[in-house]
């Protein structure tokens, strides 16, 4: 599929009442925005700071409304959306969150109404780019995947489909040169793999060691890393008293916030920065891998980019591996 055909596909989706969100390049800053024409989007190796997480897990998910002894469950809108251009790591994050929220009606309804189009980075700008092999794609949730190929200056894409929805969409659009990849579940045959298994052991072993004491002094508990992280999914349930009704919603929460572990009477179990930051790593590199057989970190680097204290997750992991 060439550039022009891809633009045609996007225009076709917009014409068919889909709301399309994609990366836009605003003077070098990559954002995710609703696009109005088939030419407004950009596919580039640079990722946006905020991931596509909010489209499935909104920062505030309205769950139910109480009024005069009546409880009305909020049903999410049947809006057809297209998310265009998810990078490999955002697809990985989405695949994980889909496992965690497998039984969640809000998440699953949004998923049913969404077309997910992934992309590989563009080879000319990514030197260590490696071809996406089937073994990788068959464990990712997506409808269509665009693998970039370079033909001189002209961009073109090898097209994969990952679902019946994706196939049907391309058939209806009139493009048939695609290869279908059957989703084989989130976990590859080899399981976690040696690096992630090693990390579980090393993180456990590192508890109480020097690095956590250093991070205790560095980290400001701002929680920015949890907001930009595409796999952070903690939440709280909150009631809000409005004029005529009471709204119960599910909001993003952060394990760095002071009241996260507070119980009646005021005791907090995560009462030091050291405990909180260890818990953050424990969740990503111990608990998620053990529970879902997938790493809880997709290596997108957003947490490092946003940290006001300069904590670099790669550096922390490197030290944990070396020192334990």
């Amino acid at each position: 599929m060439n550039d022009k055909q891809l633009q045609g596909l996007v225009s076709y989706l917009i014409k068919n009442k889909h709301t399309v969100y994609s990366h836009t390049d605003d003077d070098g800053k990559i954002n995710i925005k609703k696009i109005d024409t088939g030419k407004d989007f950009t596919l580039c190796p640079k990722r946006p700071l905020y991931s596509f997480k909010k489209f499935f897990l909104p920062s505030c998910q309205k769950m139910m409304v109480f009024s005069d002894n009546e409880t009305t469950l909020n049903r999410s809108k049947n809006e057809k959306i297209v998310l265009l251009g998810l990078h490999f790591y955002d697809l990985k994050a989405f695949t994980l969150i889909n496992q965690v929220y497998k039984k969640d009606p809000h998440f699953q309804k949004k998923l049913r109404n969404a077309i997910i189009i992934g992309q590989s980075p563009i080879p000319a700008e990514m030197e260590d780019y490696q071809k996406f092999e089937k073994e990788v794609l068959e464990h990712l949730k997506f409808d269509i995947f665009l693998e970039a190929k370079s033909h001189g200056k002209q961009e073109s894409f090898r097209i994969f489909t990952g679902s019946e929805d994706g196939q049907r969409l391309l058939d209806d659009f009139g493009y048939r040169d695609y290869e279908n990849i059957e989703y084989k579940g989130p976990v590859p045959k080899k399981g976690l793999g040696p690096i992630n298994s090693m990390l579980i052991e090393k993180i456990r072993k590192s508890r109480g060691s020097e690095i956590w004491k250093e991070l205790d002094k560095k980290c400001t508990n701002c929680g920015k890393c949890t907001i930009v992280c595409p796999t952070c999914f903690c939440f709280k349930i909150k009631d809000e008293i409005k004029k005529d009704e009471i709204l119960r919603s599910r909001e993003w929460d952060s394990c760095f916030y002071d009241e996260f572990s507070e119980i009646a009477g005021g005791h907090k179990f995560l009462n030091t920065t050291e405990k909180r930051i260890y818990n953050y790593y424990d969740h990503k590199f111990v608990r998620i891998p053990e529970e879902y057989t997938m790493p809880g970190c997709v290596s997108c680097g957003r947490c490092t980019e946003v940290c006001p204290a300069g904590i670099d997750i790669r550096e922390v992991l490197r030290r944990i591996i070396e020192e334990n």
Partner: peptide, 20 residues
Amino acid sequence: LERRMHCGIGVCQHCVLVGG
């Protein structure tokens, strides 16, 4: 054990015992 809880179904992370 008493912990803060928001979901009751093992997702929200508030009641975690660090370690799994």
